[in-house]
């Protein structure tokens, strides 16, 4: 399956709308069957949506009406004939008495049906303080021979989320992301390592630029198990600024020749596209490659279920929140 992973540079809502639509069309023209957008896409496409995001950042609660982003994404998926993971959208949620926000990742089929509405299930201390309420369900959908597990924003730092997806068959984790500041280490500690400990593919689409007093500087990337990637880096694609920082700095003289020149997408994997306000990694993924990796060495083959049965109920305290 060919996938398109879109990095969107946030600007004025009209510009964002135009850039997102063009990025989607560019992906479809390249033959992508699944397109992943970054976190908060549904907010940055309209002034009302942007206002909701800014209020969230200021810690103000709102019950403001919200534009019909779902109808828009559904139409876009239908018009381009792709599986569309519409990033995420921060929406007013909670009750009248206890308002808050939810971060929701919608996924659509090529015919425009809603396949999944995946809520972010974990919030860090700052998100909780700003009123983010979390979901309590995890869902997946099938696309072209893959089972796709959405891992929404902060959830990528909670290994249980990816583990549940992968135990239940996910072969591709998709992360709509918006990372404040630039820390390659935070990103490696996120999806890169989830991919390694579950031996699946992973794609992370980042929102970049200034928004709500934050500077989003995450790096869009596609990961695979180390064994199937150049130099065993775990990178199938990643814009060179991110990739080179890490590879050259830490492998030094031992950097394999194929990695010494900057590249965005691993040879034979696809291509990188750039347009006004966006960059895209177009990458080909094959489930047969995962199967070959597992046959070589399957991490899940050594899960110690008796150990988990013994200890984990206590870890999660009987399920009391």
């Amino acid at each position: 399956m060919r996938i398109g992973v879109v990095e969107l540079e946030v600007g004025h809502p009209e510009t964002n709308l135009r850039a997102a639509r063009r990025a989607l069309e560019a992906c479809a023209a390249e033959g992508c069957r699944l397109v992943l957008f970054p976190a908060y896409l549904g907010n940055v496409l309209s002034e009302e949506g942007m206002e909701v995001f800014l209020r969230f950042r200021r810690g103000e609660l709102t019950r403001a009406a919200f534009p019909d982003w779902e109808e828009l994404f559904s139409r876009w998926a239908r018009e381009t004939g792709v599986y569309l993971v519409g990033g995420s959208v921060l929406v007013p949620a909670g009750s009248e008495a206890s308002p808050g926000y939810a971060n929701l990742c919608p996924a659509f089929s090529p015919s425009g049906e809603v396949l999944l509405r995946q809520l972010q299930t974990h919030a860090d201390a700052e998100e909780r303080e700003r009123g983010l309420v979390t979901g309590d369900e995890l869902g997946r959908f099938s696309a072209e021979g893959f089972v796709v597990g959405p891992v929404v924003s902060t959830d990528v730092r909670v290994p249980e989320v990816s583990r549940v997806h992968c135990l239940l068959g996910a072969t591709l984790l998709v992360v709509p992301s918006a990372v404040p500041g630039y820390s390659p280490w935070a990103q490696l500690a996120g999806l890169w390592q989830e991919v390694q400990q579950n031996q699946v593919f992973g794609a992370e689409a980042c929102l970049v630029g200034e928004l709500g007093g934050l500077s989003f500087r995450g790096r869009t990337a596609v990961f695979g198990p180390c064994e199937m990637t150049p130099g065993k880096s775990g990178f199938l694609a990643g814009f060179s600024s991110f990739y080179r920082d890490l590879t050259l700095r830490y492998m030094g003289d031992e950097t394999p020749p194929e990695l010494q020149e900057p590249w965005d997408v691993a040879p034979g994997r696809g291509t990188a596209l750039t347009g006004e306000g966006y960059r895209i990694l177009v990458v080909d993924l094959d489930p047969a490659e995962l199967r070959a990796t597992w046959q070589e060495y399957d991490i899940f083959g050594e899960l110690n279920l008796n150990l988990y049965r013994r200890h984990l109920p206590e870890v999660y305290g009987g399920g009391e929140r």
């Binding site: 299930t121 974990h122 860090d124 201390a125 979390t134 309590d136 995890l138 902060t154 730092r157 909670v158 249980e160 984990l312 109920p313 870890v315 999660y316 305290g317 009987g318 399920g319 009391e320 929140r321």
Partner: peptide, 9 residues
């Protein structure tokens, strides 16, 4: 950040 015990259970 902690895992949600309800979700995990």
């Amino acid at each position: 950040l902690r895992p949600d015990p309800a979700l995990c259970s």
